[in-house]
Design a protein around this nucleic acid. Sequence first.
DNA 1: GGATGGCATGTTGACGTCAACATCGTAGCC
DNA 2: GGCTACGATGTTGACGTCAACATGCCATCC
Lengths: 347, 347
Amino acid sequence: MLDPRRPRRGASINDVARLAGVSGQTVSRVAHGSTSVRPETRAKVLAAMERLGYAPNHAARALRAGEFGTIGLLAHRFERTGEALTTEGVIGAAAAQNVGVTVVDVRRDEVDDWQSAASRLTHQAIDGLVVIRAEQATPEELALPADLPVVVSDSRFAGRYPAVVADQAQGTREAVQHLLDLGHRTVHHVAGPADSEPAAVRLDTWRRMLEEAGRRVPEPWRGDWTARTGYGLGHEIAADPSVTAVFCANDETALGLLRALHEAGRRVPEDVSVVGFDGIALGEFTYPPLTTVSQDFHAIGRELVRLLLDRVRATGADEPQRVVVPTELVVRRTTGPAAENHNADPA
Amino acid sequence: MLDPRRPRRGASINDVARLAGVSGQTVSRVAHGSTSVRPETRAKVLAAMERLGYAPNHAARALRAGEFGTIGLLAHRFERTGEALTTEGVIGAAAAQNVGVTVVDVRRDEVDDWQSAASRLTHQAIDGLVVIRAEQATPEELALPADLPVVVSDSRFAGRYPAVVADQAQGTREAVQHLLDLGHRTVHHVAGPADSEPAAVRLDTWRRMLEEAGRRVPEPWRGDWTARTGYGLGHEIAADPSVTAVFCANDETALGLLRALHEAGRRVPEDVSVVGFDGIALGEFTYPPLTTVSQDFHAIGRELVRLLLDRVRATGADEPQRVVVPTELVVRRTTGPAAENHNADPA
DNA sequence: GGATGGCATGTTGACGTCAACATCGTAGCC
DNA sequence: GGCTACGATGTTGACGTCAACATGCCATCC
């Protein structure tokens, strides 16, 4: 914690008042829009402010108002695309309302890390909290103050707090359908981690799509969102000639897979088609450019702020809501027609 | 701004005191480490806190202490790797000191955007400010309060505020030397934007290295950090058979270039070697994996916090310092020996 | 038994701001 | 001329916390 005895303190409203020869209240009036202050009085006050470099004390304002004008944001490793873009959306939308955002990063996605991050944050000066994908912690474990307005994105918290989620199922359906339309007999899947809710939705939807189409449902591979694991599994995938289409749980995994396929001499998309998920910016500049399901993370961030500020400002109205943001298949060049020579695979 | 008349206010120290039948001061003592409170008194107070769901009011604490325990961070589009990782480093290091971080994102790298972001931030409750690469704004234009401790990373602000910068020159030297050692007659360069200081250092160092080695200095291409521009320039670069080695100002640009080279049928690294800069995580999983100069952004973030908290806590000691964080060449697979057939190029 | 000292607890005030109320002066009106 | 009304400005107190000081109690010691 910062040293509380540091004397460095700016000029207060009363310092300005003394210099300008008016009362503190008049300074306060000038500092705000100010109703009814004589122009010459205002000028005097403004001059005094200028001279002393007056800046309002936010702690005092917050104390008096009972609000901080700041919300907290809790995320896990937010340099990852989804987290970073959602955070950006949150920050932008909050800024537009003159609300600041205090960010806390959870280093490892484990319960005690989430706990300590949450407690750190609730010990900060915030009026509300945005939680982005707390996959490894339950609401109870987080032990958030009961009177703190909270909204979440995409997590098991959705039942408990208002949530903004991307339409995982829709995107997955489009991706699988796209591959089937290209003539692939079936679609393989590299899933996300087992404890991730979005990963589970993508997995379930993929399976259901294949079942509904009457296709064989191959055993999915289990990934962990990383390119490294996509690359590792990729060696195995590349070695299996029956694999002609792979739907990856996210773009990083798809990129790792792409490298492995290249190294194994499997051509993309001639031999194998690949679809990612997320729509990271670099997907457009991989070789070949990556077909993917893009999510509008900025929109998620904006909706989160809207929901949260509603809750912060309203006194009642607390039934959990759920806002769904659409996803969109972006077809680039990692998907193509099924190769003829592998059609021996039974439908 | 949040509505200041919302009555939602938690229990105060005095509510707890009343319930526990003690004075507010005793509650305060219990709330802290607390010296000398009788165990049974403490228990009573703790029970009352529990029952009322007491949480300390940070505005009041901040007002009394004259400090917020929060620093601000100003960055441009911080979902980009360098910004995001530096921000992560800052947040982590600050958290370790129980200091929060309020983040403001500058949408467009233009003066008025920087200005409005800066003023938004200085109207927040912060004790100090970290500015990450403010390339389009001068210190004067930012108009930061004179008494606000500020540290910066990597920018034209370095002369004015304490700064933490990566050793751009060292990394550039290693990269160029690596390519020359591989037998390339000269090294081409796709630069960053003209108004970026790090881009200028990379450009100058690249030129100096070639001059010192007595090599021809080809006209550099002017990029803008984006993969898109790297891709666009890449078509031109791929069409020039005299180009055997390209040093790109950053990884995104290099990735765009890579795609263009692939599309043009130029093999990497057999026909053309490519080096990036930054060390983004995905560089390891492009095809081929990208040789690059990696920067330790987390270290930069940590150093920024160290410097800033020094300034916040110290009363004097304000002469600008400069901390240099080393960079490191990471050789992967986009660089290889110069092709024999292009050695016609004069040394 | 009374003085001493130390520990537990209470009281006061100040941090900076601003709403609510109080005061003062003057223009306008009969 | 005296009264009203309103506009400009001042005064007071409260938001929650905690350092500094004050008080009160008890054990100890001669």
